[in-house]
Amino acid sequence: MPLFFILSGFVQSDSSKKNIVKFIIGKIKSLLVPFLFWGLLFCRNDNYAEWKDVLYASSLSLSYAKTFSPLWFLPCLFFLLLFLYRLRNLLMTILIL
């Protein structure tokens, strides 16, 4: 799995010039919307607890929901990219000062 994170970093464009709001909206559209679409599509519609497990987004909760459990990668990548965006901007600020 670490290989997928490394590969996604290689294909990540330089987003340090983007506004944080535009960056977050872009990542929601490209990572979280497909996660919710496929996760909720594969879960049974009659059980509310399974929908809640999909929204929790851990690998274990996705397997409880009997949905496509490899989807845990998408929300994890979303939060990692947000963290790296803030870290990059913080380091740029420190290095400029």
Rank of each mutant, 00 (worst) to 15 (best):
M1L: 14
P2C: 03
F5A: 11
F5D: 05
I6R: 06
I6F: 06
I6G: 04
S8A: 14
F10W: 10
Q12R: 14
D14M: 02
S15A: 14
K17S: 15
K17I: 09
K17W: 07
K18A: 00
N19R: 11
N19K: 08
I20V: 07
I20T: 04
I20D: 00
K22S: 15
F23Y: 14
F23Q: 00
I25V: 03
G26E: 10
G26C: 05
G26K: 09
S30D: 11
L31F: 03
L32S: 02
P34F: 00
F35T: 10
L36Y: 08
L36E: 07
F37H: 00
W38E: 02
W38M: 07
G39A: 04
L40D: 01
L41S: 06
F42T: 09
F42L: 15
R44H: 12
R44I: 08
D46C: 02
Y48I: 15
A49V: 12
A49P: 07
E50C: 01
E50N: 05
W51Q: 12
D53I: 04
V54W: 00
V54F: 00
A57H: 03
S59W: 06
S59L: 10
L60S: 12
Y64G: 09
K66E: 12
T67N: 02
F68V: 12
P70A: 03
P70Q: 06
W72F: 13
W72G: 04
L74K: 11
L74I: 13
L74S: 11
P75K: 02
C76T: 15
L77F: 04
L77G: 02
L77A: 03
F78P: 09
F78I: 04
F78W: 01
F79Q: 08
F79G: 10
L80Y: 11
L82Q: 08
F83Y: 13
F83M: 13
L84M: 13
R86L: 15
L87R: 03
L87M: 11
L90G: 13
M92G: 10
M92F: 04
M92Q: 14
M92V: 07
I96V: 12
I96H: 11
